[in-house]
Structures are given as structure tokens and as C-alpha cells.
Simulated scan of single mutants.
Amino acid sequence: MIWTKSKTFILSGLFCFLLSACAISYKFNGSSINYDKVKTISIADFPIKATYVYAPLGTRFNEELNDIFIRQTRLQFVKRDADLEIEGEITGYNQYNQAVKADGYSSETKLTITVNVRFVNNTNHEEDFEQQFSAFRTYDSSQMLTAVQDQLISEMVKEITDQIFNATVANW
């Protein structure tokens, strides 16, 4: 069988048409929300109930938790009777000596934040949970906590809010 230029041209055109007609679309915004069922969310402010209280922690955590849902979902924020409800409290803000040098003094200090979260999915109560989330960072003990605290809190709050987002709406 001898191929002619016209047959090659027709097959090439057909291949290009089929290739352009097929499209694969992925959406990686981090959530797997069925927006036909779930339209609203309420997120209560998380009070600090830890023994040690660093006031800016509460504000930073509450803002970051709200922001992640604003940035990565299309959910409407409401005060009550939401499809998804998130509430809880910051239960731990602690520092511990992590490592000891040969002279007996601490060389590293571990700072930990722990948050207790209650999640209610009013469209599917099988997904409801109460769970603790935490993050930690270590820093050189020769530094004062006040010198590194804001940076470490920023990193840990981001990590914890990501964990909460993934546990509540990512469903991976």
C-alpha cells in the first residue's frame, strides 16, 4: 500500500484534532470539597488555654486559620449554623531543654505549640472529630526565646493550620 501525501496530511490533521479535543484537568488547591453540598463554614476564635501565654500567638493562629480557608476554598464564612464548624483552643505553648552539652548546660531548646480542634461536618457527621495538632521547633539555647519566638511561632502556626486544613477538607 502506498501512502500519499493527502492521506498523511489527513491522518496528521485527525491526530491533531483528537489531541486537542482531549484535555486533562487537575485542580490542586488542596481541598476536596463537594460544593453542591458544602457551602458554608464557621471558624470560632481559638482562645489560649496554655499554662504559658504569649498573647500574639492567639491572634496569629486565628488569622492564619481563617486565611487558609479563604485562600484555598470557596466556602462562605458565617457565624453559626454552617455546613462545616471548626472550634477549639490552644492548649500548649511549652519550651523544654532538648540537648545537653558536655558541661551540663543545655545546647538546644524545643518550643512546642499544641492545639485542640473540634470539627463538625453537618452534611456528613461521619467526618466529625476532636483531635490535637502540634508542631515544634528547636533553637540554640544561647539565644533568648524573645529573640526567636516570633519567627518560630510563624513557622509552627503555618504547619498546624496546614494540618488542620488537610484533616478537615483535604480528605487525601
Rank of each mutant, 00 (worst) to 15 (best):
106 S>V: 07
60 R>D: 11
20 S>P: 09
159 E>A: 13
90 I>C: 05
90 I>P: 10
153 I>G: 08
107 S>V: 03
54 Y>W: 14
134 S>V: 01
117 V>R: 03
72 Q>K: 14
84 L>Y: 04
59 T>P: 00
53 V>M: 05
98 Q>E: 13
113 I>V: 14
102 A>L: 09
15 F>Q: 03
105 Y>P: 00
156 M>E: 06
154 S>E: 13
143 Q>K: 15
123 T>R: 15
97 N>C: 04
46 F>M: 01
151 Q>H: 12
52 Y>E: 06
17 F>I: 15
168 T>C: 10
65 L>K: 02
55 A>N: 12
142 S>E: 07
106 S>F: 11
138 T>L: 13
119 F>R: 03
160 I>A: 10
83 D>L: 00
29 N>E: 10
70 I>W: 04
117 V>S: 06
144 M>S: 15
22 C>A: 14
121 N>W: 07
101 K>A: 15
50 A>K: 03
81 D>F: 12
148 V>Q: 10
158 K>Q: 08
68 I>H: 07
148 V>H: 11
126 E>H: 12
154 S>I: 01
29 N>Y: 13
144 M>K: 15
90 I>L: 03
93 Y>S: 07
68 I>Y: 09
11 L>P: 06
66 N>W: 02
62 N>M: 03
103 D>A: 07
152 L>E: 08
6 S>N: 11
60 R>W: 00
29 N>W: 06
142 S>K: 14
59 T>E: 04
22 C>E: 06
93 Y>K: 01
82 A>I: 00
85 E>L: 00
147 A>W: 14
163 Q>C: 04
83 D>A: 01
58 G>M: 02
125 H>L: 00
11 L>E: 11
156 M>I: 06
141 S>C: 10
97 N>G: 15
7 K>R: 14
61 F>W: 02
104 G>R: 05
164 I>A: 09
22 C>W: 13
144 M>N: 15
111 L>N: 07
100 V>M: 14
112 T>M: 02
85 E>I: 01
136 F>R: 05
124 N>S: 12
66 N>S: 10
37 K>E: 13
129 F>R: 01
122 N>A: 04
139 Y>C: 08
158 K>N: 10
169 V>Y: 08
104 G>F: 10
171 N>Y: 09
52 Y>Q: 06
